[in-house]
């Protein structure tokens, strides 16, 4: 069984994030890293392929400047190879534009299953994988908290408002996984060394037969009107606990009438 995993390479979320002054899109020029949220999909894919007794885990990514550092992390975890779409025409792409690009990649890779995070850490639109499924004409199961594959179908525990649903879905399919679905492994030294020589196929938009107008800022058909400072909440009173802070909290709860 072959599993493709969507891997987003993002600016360090713990670092200083900024928007470009003209288009107000996230600055992605510096070094990028694998979105932590994607580690769960990569780990899930590795475990599913192993359980199936063979197959490849292929990474799919879209990033500027031929960026591969995040992909190397996922390759070091054990993925076989990666396909990276990098093209100046993609700057400013929205979720639907990204889904169009990845749909073209899926048609080349022909996986049995596509895994993705429920949303990225930087843009958190949270719709790309299901848009991808619709473009491919595939079924999808979002918010998976448990995943297994048997008899040509994927079985998923899907998070719901009330609890969870047991969902069965024939392959090929797109499944989005929540954090905590599996415990991602840390790349071993051997894995890191091996990742250096693994294949990262680089493609442009025209390689995929996609019209430039369908993607990038033009294809996104949306614009940022303004970015302003939010109303700041003011910090209130800070007390250092000297064994009696609970009394202060109790008084506060009484003051706001929840006690």
């Amino acid at each position: 069984m072959n599993v493709a995993v969507c891997v987003k390479q993002i600016p360090d979320p713990a670092g200083e994030l900024s928007l470009t002054p003209d288009s107000h899109t996230l600055v992605r020029e510096g070094k990028l890293m694998m979105d932590d949220s994607d580690a769960y999909g990569v780990e899930m894919a590795l475990q599913l392929v192993e359980a199936a007794g063979g197959g490849d885990v292929v990474l799919m990514s879209m990033a500027p400047n031929g960026e591969t550092s995040g992909l190397r992390t996922a390759l070091a975890m054990g993925a076989e190879r990666a396909v990276l779409v990098s093209d100046p025409a993609l700057a400013g792409s929205d979720a639907l534009g990204t889904a169009k690009v990845l749909a073209a990649v899926v048609k080349r890779v022909e996986p049995d299953l596509v895994l993705a995070a429920t949303e990225s850490t930087d843009g958190y639109t949270g719709t790309m994988p299901v848009q991808l499924a619709e473009l491919l004409g595939w079924p999808s199961v979002s918010f998976a908290k448990q995943v297994s594959v048997a008899g040509g179908a994927v079985n998923v525990r899907r998070q719901t408002e009330a609890g969870y649903d047991e969902v069965t879905c024939p392959l090929p399919a797109v499944v989005t996984v929540t954090a905590g679905v599996v415990e991602p492994r840390y790349p071993s030294f051997k894995g890191i060394m091996a990742a250096r020589s693994k294949s990262v196929e680089q493609l442009s938009v025209s390689d995929l037969g996609i019209e430039g107008s369908q993607v990038g800022a033009t294809g996104a058909r949306q614009e940022v009107v303004s970015v302003q400072q939010a109303d700041e909440r003011q910090a209130g009173e800070i007390v250092v606990d000297e064994g009696d802070a609970h009394e202060r909290i109790l008084a506060f709860l009484e003051q706001v009438k929840v006690l």
């Binding site: 949270g126 719709t127 299901v130 619709e134 979002s142």
Partner: peptide, 24 residues
């Protein structure tokens, strides 16, 4: 609504109608 099911409906509708969406 940005709910488990709402997101799925919006995502598929966006692809079907070829219209972008704004979330959050």
């Amino acid at each position: 609504g940005m709910t488990y099911d709402g997101r799925d409906v919006a995502a598929r509708l966006s692809a079907r109608l070829d219209r972008p969406l704004l979330t959050n």
